[in-house]
């Protein structure tokens, strides 16, 4: 998986108000595509936009939800469900990820500063 390894990594993405609750958007950080979510409870989350099961960059267009207490995102192509907190794949829908890809997503820390959303790629979990 592509992970940027540059030193100065915190980068401005957009204003918090630009994010609609429960509707993801994609962002381009260097050559890494990231999916950003603002949930109804006000929290913000970022995971890789690449869906490991389809190989397409689509997770920002999935449906948010929850499994128990864990906020989730479901891939729009084959409906796998991932935790927005850890990136863990919670439902593979009986499919294997694309060769060489992990079923789990990379999660990126976001920070909110004065109504602006920043991302730290180096902080990948």
């Amino acid at each position: 998986m592509t992970t940027a390894a540059s030193a100065v990594t915190t980068q401005y993405l957009c204003d918090y108000d630009r994010l609609t609750p429960e509707l993801g958007v994609a962002a381009l950080v260097g050559d890494v595509q990231v999916a950003i979510f603002r949930l109804a409870d006000g929290s913000i989350h970022a995971v890789q936009n690449l869906c490991p099961f389809s190989g397409a960059y689509v997770l920002s267009r999935g449906i948010t939800g929850s499994r128990g207490d864990v906020p989730t995102i479901a891939s729009p192509l084959y409906k796998q469900v991932f935790s927005l907190l850890t990136g863990e794949c919670l439902a593979t829908m009986d499919k294997a990820p694309r060769p060489g890809m992990s079923p789990d997503l990379a999660v990126y820390p976001l920070t909110l500063d004065n109504g602006q959303v920043f991302i730290d790629l180096a902080g990948t979990e």
Partner: peptide, 21 residues
């Protein structure tokens, strides 16, 4: 209203998503 976030991928952008997105 808050319905865009409810819609299946396809309804959400009113087009059918293909395998490459």
């Amino acid at each position: 209203q808050d319905r865009a976030a409810l819609q299946d991928t396809n309804d959400r952008v009113m087009a059918n998503m293909q395998k490459d997105g």
